[in-house]
Amino acid sequence: MIEARDLKKSFDAQPVLDGVSFEIETGESVAIIGRSGCGKSVLLKHLVGLLKPESGAVLIDGENIVPMNERQLLRVRQKFGMVFQSAALFDSMTVAENVAFALRRNSRLSEAEIARRVAHALDVVNLPGTGDKSPAELSGGMRKRVGLARAIVYEPRILLYDEPTTGLDPIVSDSIDQLMVRVRDELNVTSVVVTHDMRTARRVGHRVVMLHQGKVQANGMPDRVFDSTDPIVRQFVDGVADAREPS
């Protein structure tokens, strides 16, 4: 289970998270939505200990990770897989080396077993036979899928997705959505998806959390949030520009 308790974080005196609290049950899939710059990615990075809050707690299976140092966090992070907005593939390695990275460093599996698992992970993300390519040879969608293969190959219990469909065309976005649903259901992992794509949030999330001005504005089943009468939620869901803001 993941629990965020009253998280506060600011950058250069600008508050980004201002008392964010929520819980995510084991096996649940939660979509975190909100406008660009509202702190979605910052929140996601707090869940895996990449950022530390100024106050508040992050509990992973009841263990507060905020006071942990970098080396103590390594143990907790073995429960996580993360797909980055930019994919963040290691550009000095091939696709297969990227996917095998965690297995080579953190397990005692034989090379044959690692190769088998890498091939399976690439099959799951519909990229068989791409192991020898370098990340630079891949399209944006393929890079995201390799990032997902790298995140699932060691069978983590929690998967974090940071804007998985941003910058992709609708067809590729749809394939990534299907992939996330498939991974969620087949591997039975807890998923946290940060997105501002309403279709992705509706398809992948069992629950939707909306952030606004550093606080949780809405938290509930997708239909409840998307049918909300709250003007802030409505404006975001309907994609209506703020009349006070210059276009």
């Binding site: 990075k45 895996v48 200990g49 990449l50 970098e70 966090l73 390594l74 143990r75 992070r77 073995q78 996580f80 897989g81 993360m82 980055f84 907005q85 930019s86 963040a88 593939l89 290691f90 550009d91 990275f101 965690a102 460093r105 953190n106 790298r150 995140a151 974090l160």
Partner: peptide, 12 residues
């Protein structure tokens, strides 16, 4: 390019 963050999430 967030590759160092990726290293950290891969427990390295």
């Amino acid at each position: 390019t967030e590759q160092i963050d990726a290293l950290r999430t891969l427990a390295t």
